[in-house]
Design a binder for these strands. Sequence first.
DNA 1: TTGAAAGCGCTAACAG
DNA 2: CTGTTAGCGCTTTCAA
Lengths: 346, 346
Amino acid sequence: MTNIRDIARLAGVSVATVSRALAKPGVVRPATIEKVKQAIAALDYSPNLVASSLRRQRSDTIIVVVPNIHNPFYSGVVQGIENIAHDNGYKILLGETQNNQERLDRYTAMLTSKGADGLILLGSRLPTIVQESLAEDREPPIPLVLACERFDGLSSPSVEIDNIAASRLATEHLIDLGHKRIATISGPKDNPLSGDRLQGYRDALKTAHIRFERNLVVEGDFSIRSGYIAMTRLLARDVRPTAIFCANDEMAIGAQKAAREAGLKMPGDLAIIGFDDIRFAEYAEPPLTTIAQPTVEIGEAAMRLMISVLDGTAAQGERIVLPHELVKRASAGPLTASVPLSTDNG
Amino acid sequence: MTNIRDIARLAGVSVATVSRALAKPGVVRPATIEKVKQAIAALDYSPNLVASSLRRQRSDTIIVVVPNIHNPFYSGVVQGIENIAHDNGYKILLGETQNNQERLDRYTAMLTSKGADGLILLGSRLPTIVQESLAEDREPPIPLVLACERFDGLSSPSVEIDNIAASRLATEHLIDLGHKRIATISGPKDNPLSGDRLQGYRDALKTAHIRFERNLVVEGDFSIRSGYIAMTRLLARDVRPTAIFCANDEMAIGAQKAAREAGLKMPGDLAIIGFDDIRFAEYAEPPLTTIAQPTVEIGEAAMRLMISVLDGTAAQGERIVLPHELVKRASAGPLTASVPLSTDNG
DNA sequence: TTGAAAGCGCTAACAG
DNA sequence: CTGTTAGCGCTTTCAA
């Protein structure tokens, strides 16, 4: 390992000067910098960032935790985070939790052990350490930013869309198309996001004076498979729904498969609408109408927020809400049923 | 920041004892460990891993680099890597390159700067620093394991499937179903993996005495969209193919959409086969026949390989080949065309 | 503009 | 089984 002393010796300067030449070139004589550069090139030196972190007590590294790296929705958000991080000299490291608390805590531990300066959470549980601080009514002990997620009672800075309004918009779209019997495949009910999306659905029904029916709500877990299963159950109802609002695109894609297998034509017999606008949505059969979130912008805003948290310039509980958009494709259309609605009396 | 000295003081022992109590409990008297534990709990101490890394000259951290975190195929591999890493006291950190050399090099830099001990590359370019060492015929300067990828001339340990054999199997399946006019949507031609998959396709044709036709090969970039575009081009041929082997599932899903839009029935008019068995494959319309790779096992093997590299026990250029499997679903069936093959003369 | 030196928090000899 | 002590490689006063 060639280190800063080797460079200093070869360049004929002190280690302090080498350090300065690298970190604050403005304060070192150009000729000296040149000597240092040559020594670095000659010895193929690269600074030990671990030592630097220890000394400076910061790593310029941010941990980003996502539940599933394969969820197409998170890609854009991570992209946005990286954009801003890179422009500001931060490195970003990704952790995947699989909705597993232990894994989440393992990544969070990198903060308490100083391997990282901050944590950006994308839709996931809260780290145990944050939950505890919450229970004791203290501020989270680590710099934390929430993206696309919210936790009741936690006032960390966050960036998100208005999930209630977006779900209301989606459901209203179905109502506008003439549907009255509208079901929803929701997310897990312990998830605040799911709660918001269900709320938007209920709000839209209420405004349209359509009665909310408990048995038109089927809970999924955001996976394709759970959408398929939920749809199968909905189709077994005495009177099946004519439209479905799914709390994410993956469940919608699973639901579409179940509908196809049941011989239903979409959108004629059944309108389906998703949420997220993942890349597969456009290629679904039929192409999926959905709510698009500005993923890259969400990521960019989250990282900017993190920087201001680290600077100490973030406002307490700052909350950024970005706009959503209804993307109309073929999966949701007016009701023109070719198949009877009722299972038993045809 | 409470540190190891604070603990030592409160527990009434030396810092060395605290360190040992944490790292090698077997060598410390139980009663002493108990005192240390209490002090740690009382002061809410967590060890500074940066200091530990600096002192030990290892971080017990492995960087895993993937081209796109949203590619569903990588999820299982990362999962497998994490399984083994965790069992062996390693942390894993994910980097996404977007096929961008600069980003790849940025993650690789964490190795030269000692932030990580090793690098597992999932299908991507090679870091510049590795390319250089290759050009100068030296060993890569960093512990490196390749998963699901290969680079001509590089003898780093790797784990993969036999892509040539798997592609041959896929193509033979189409031939067995009676197809003679078989096209392929390949990956980018500068990608060795694409080359292997194209080779397997050609091998199968050759064995079956079917002439290879250049214009039945269309190059994609592994994205859904490129599959859609490639299929559109294939359907514009004077005589369209009756079967397509796609070098990955995403392109196959794009191709399916183009086929549906052209009014082709699958599998009657057109058989399609993919590669990877991503989670969406089963939900495609029609469900996609494809080659499944043992993703989790690939990841596990890769991490085991990394551990042996770090131990110095890995054999030079060790290469693990895991079995693949043909998953038959509805998208590939015998030819029973309802639509004329030829565009111009019906 | 540069150098000397202290020390970030931890671990691993070494000695007892 | 435990304590003393010397650094790991770097940055940052402080002084010149």
